[in-house]
């Protein structure tokens, strides 16, 4: 019997028209594991993690998430998505809702948690990401780093089993990056299963069990952060690392 991870890619392929964006991806993420995905622009990192919650659909191969095969008629995708938090590069907070409302919207309407209970939990989560005083602020009144922390709290409000991050700090000013990374480290240390697209080496070294390097739609290399950053095995990963280390 093959062992099943929390997220299991088996021979996954995807095309955008003639472009083979994901090439024969095989990757298994264990429960509580933190996997960092890196690679050059256009290598398919976003597409890879967007497939996991069905924001993109795969063409062939198997993708099993939390024991449910995507594309299977028996899989309730809407239900499965409630178990998967997704943090976007551009935050995508609801601009017409306050920070607290952003956090409680899906718990109230999707999870059907009573409002008072959801608000209590929402306040605690916002306090946890350091925004206890911004509960009633609208997204436009928050800095990028604060918005991204609200976005993380919004995902946590659903009590997900998996959290996916797509370059969560690359739209941020440098001085705001660490406040977001600190929150992500805290989430990782609580045992969340995470896949994080990022080039933040410090974060990878601190909490990731594995770094996956992608190029041109394929996983070219994978190893522990130390193996990957200190002893990259392929020319392509060496070339990539020399580029991100230069600045």
């Amino acid at each position: 019997m093959t062992k099943t991870g929390m997220i299991d890619f088996r021979g996954v392929n995807k095309w955008f028209g003639a472009l083979n964006v994901l090439r024969d991806i095989t990757l298994s993420v264990e429960p509580r594991e933190v996997v960092v995905v890196c690679g050059p622009s256009g290598s398919g990192k976003s597409t890879l993690i967007r497939c996991i919650n069905g924001l993109e659909t795969i063409r062939d191969g198997d993708l099993v998430v939390d024991g449910q095969r995507l594309g299977d008629p028996a899989t309730n995708m809407t239900r499965l998505r409630t178990e998967i938090g997704f943090v976007f590069q551009s935050f995508n907070l609801y601009p017409h809702k306050t920070a607290l409302e952003n956090v409680t919207l899906a718990p109230i309407h999707v999870r059907k948690i009573p409002r008072a209970e959801a608000e209590q939990a929402g306040r605690e989560l916002l306090a946890k990401v350091g925004l206890a005083d911004k509960v009633d602020a609208y997204p436009a009144q928050l800095s990028g780093g604060q918005q991204q922390r609200v976005a993380i709290a919004r995902c946590l409000g659903m009590r997900p089993k998996i959290m996916l991050f797509d370059e969560p700090t690359s739209a941020l000013d440098p001085e705001m990056i660490s406040e977001v990374l600190d929150v992500m480290v805290a989430v990782a240390e609580e045992g969340m299963t995470m896949m994080v697209v990022t080039h933040e080496m410090g974060f990878a070294r601190k909490v990731a069990q594995r770094v996956v390097f992608m190029d041109a739609g394929a996983i070219v290399e994978s190893g522990t952060p130390d193996e990957f950053f200190s002893h990259p095995k392929t020319d392509r990963s060496r070339a990539f690392l020399s580029k991100i280390l230069r600045h």
Binding site: N53, G85, N92
Partner: peptide, 24 residues
């Protein structure tokens, strides 16, 4: 991105329309 945020949090089409898209 607003649609995607709604989709990612498990909202149905109707919930997304009612809670996210139409008010904006």
């Amino acid at each position: 991105g607003q649609v995607e945020a709604g989709v990612a949090s498990g909202m149905t089409y109707v919930q997304r329309m009612r809670l996210v898209i139409l008010p904006q």
